[in-house]
Amino acid sequence: METLNAEQLNFEPVVVGFTCNWCSYRAADLAGMSRAKYPANIRLVRFMCSGRLDPVFIMKALKGGADGVLITGCHPGECHYLEQNYKALKRFKLLRRMLSQFGYEPERVQLVWASAAEGTYLAHQISRVVEEIRALGPLHRASDTPSFELIGDAQLQEATV
């Protein structure tokens, strides 16, 4: 494993985590009940389903100050709404491709499936993701970054459908 430099060591990344109401949010609840520890750098936001995940949310989060985004949901085949997590998966893949086209590390956006029973597993995954994003360093938002509204829409829609 590569060693972190001083800047990276002192750097506290902010990671926004999107969860679904039925599996991963409950996994986070269970992590709490099991007292499984993970870094305080993650901020969880709840949806009903990972299918609700609009790629705009991810871009807004990154633009708004997050250094990374963690998408979570029910395991494939176990979606409370039958199959909507597959749509999240599709969007995630397209979005990652788009991120690298924009010159950002695609690893800043990560996907983890966690069932309601996998509290400790989710805690481990959150720790892993936070550390990986810490290693990537702060997300540099150049002041001349074009507004996502201007360049994003076409691609966003592509990723959306």
Binding site: F11, E12, V45, V56, F57, A66, P138
Partner: peptide, 23 residues
Amino acid sequence: QFSTEQILAQLHGLLAESFNGNG
């Protein structure tokens, strides 16, 4: 209950109060 506006507002709020770089 899960409108785009509500979610973006939530993101806005929680990132406005987040530490960034060097804590």
